[in-house]
């Protein structure tokens, strides 16, 4: 069993299927790069495993802890006797085949929605439980999302301090010492007292990385961490992420930086249209892609350069 397992994640937004059953595994300490064109569902996938979006179906496990487990609704079980009677009545009516099909589907999807609501009601997690579960995961956003009214050190320590106030554990001193270590690691020891508005984008993103690391997540996710940065600032952020690779952090990086995926990742996942089209080592994906779609995507990515 792998350290981090995602299976069969599905998510619809209205009538668009954004994720159509995504499964992958990550070993402890591995870096996984997720590549793919915009709209392929990469970001939604990260948001699902970070509890920012609730998937319709899917399971996420880290270690032996189940974080998300949303079963599929079986239409057979969702249908009540009344629904069945309704379907029988529709079928015996003298409508065209298509009309019958439409109407039957409507009844089924309505029953499924109802069953889903019931399941959600019965399995609703407390705020406390959701918080505990999501702390297994860490997230670094494309737009950094630092708290502008706190200085760099407070940005990194705030969550841990609030947590410690509730549950005991580390003292403020310990939390600060650790935060300073992390800030040194991302190369920002001299900016501890600065406010985010005084930092460059690259520096802000490095603070965001330190902030996420401060809570010791089992898996750290990056959502296009360099997409909002100038090319010259991209390097400093990627270097930090690369540096983390040797510290046993398990990371999932959604990225458009092909060079980064090729050189740093242990595993590359190519997503297209809400499914994983192909996954493998960087050598396999970049050197010898099997899927036509992957080939086309990589070719396009090369062309840009």
């Amino acid at each position: 069993m792998a350290f981090f397992e995602v299976s069969n994640i599905r998510k619809d937004f209205g009538s668009t299927q954004v994720l159509k059953g995504v499964s992958f595994e990550v070993e402890k300490g591995q870096v996984v790069a997720i590549i793919g064109s915009s709209g392929s569902g990469k970001t939604t996938l990260l948001r699902c495993i970070n509890f920012l979006v609730t998937p319709d179906v899917g399971t996420v496990k880290v270690g032996d802890k189940v974080l998300i487990d949303i079963p599929e609704i079986d239409p057979d079980q969702a249908l009540s006797d009344k629904d069945r009677a309704k379907i029988a009545k529709i079928k015996s009516s003298n409508l065209t085949k298509e009309e019958i099909g439409d109407k039957v589907n409507k009844v089924i999807s309505k029953a499924c929605k109802k069953a889903k609501k019931q399941w959600e009601k019965a399995n609703k997690l407390s705020e406390e439980e959701i918080r505990n579960r999501r702390l297994h995961m860490g997230m670094v956003f494309q737009s950094f999302n630092l708290f502008p009214h706190y200085n760099v050190l407070d940005n990194v320590t705030l969550a841990a301090k609030l947590r410690a106030k509730e549950t005991g554990g580390a003292t403020e001193q310990e939390i600060e010492t650790k935060a300073l270590e992390l800030l040194a690691k991302v190369g920002l020891s001299d900016k501890v007292k600065n406010y985010p508005c005084e930092l460059s984008g690259g520096q802000q993103q490095r603070v965001a990385i330190a902030r996420a690391l401060a809570l010791n997540p089992d898996v750290l996710c990056f959502d296009e961490p360099t997409s909002a940065l100038d090319p010259e600032l991209t390097g400093e952020v990627l270097k930090v992420i690369k540096g983390l690779k040797n510290t046993d952090s398990t990371m999932i990086v959604v990225t458009h930086e092909m060079e980064f995926a090729r050189k740093v990742a242990d595993k590359v996942i190519y997503m297209s249209d809400g499914v994983i089209e192909e996954q493998g080592t960087p050598e396999e994906i970049f050197g010898n892609p099997k899927s036509e779609k992957t080939k086309a995507f990589l070719q396009k990515a090369e062309e840009v350069i």
């Binding site: 970070n50 509890f51 920012l52 705020e127 918080r131 505990n132 999501r134 702390l135 995961m137 860490g138 997230m139 956003f141 737009s143 999302n145 630092l146 708290f147 705030l158 969550a159 609030l162 947590r163 902030r211 996420a212 809570l215």
Partner: peptide, 21 residues
């Protein structure tokens, strides 16, 4: 911005803490 709430959530803040802090 929504990102401020999201950053709070992924850091394990309670909704109340996000609002107040």
């Amino acid at each position: 911005p929504q990102g401020q709430y999201e950053a709070g959530y992924v850091l394990g803040f309670k909704r109340k803490q996000i609002v107040s802090r």
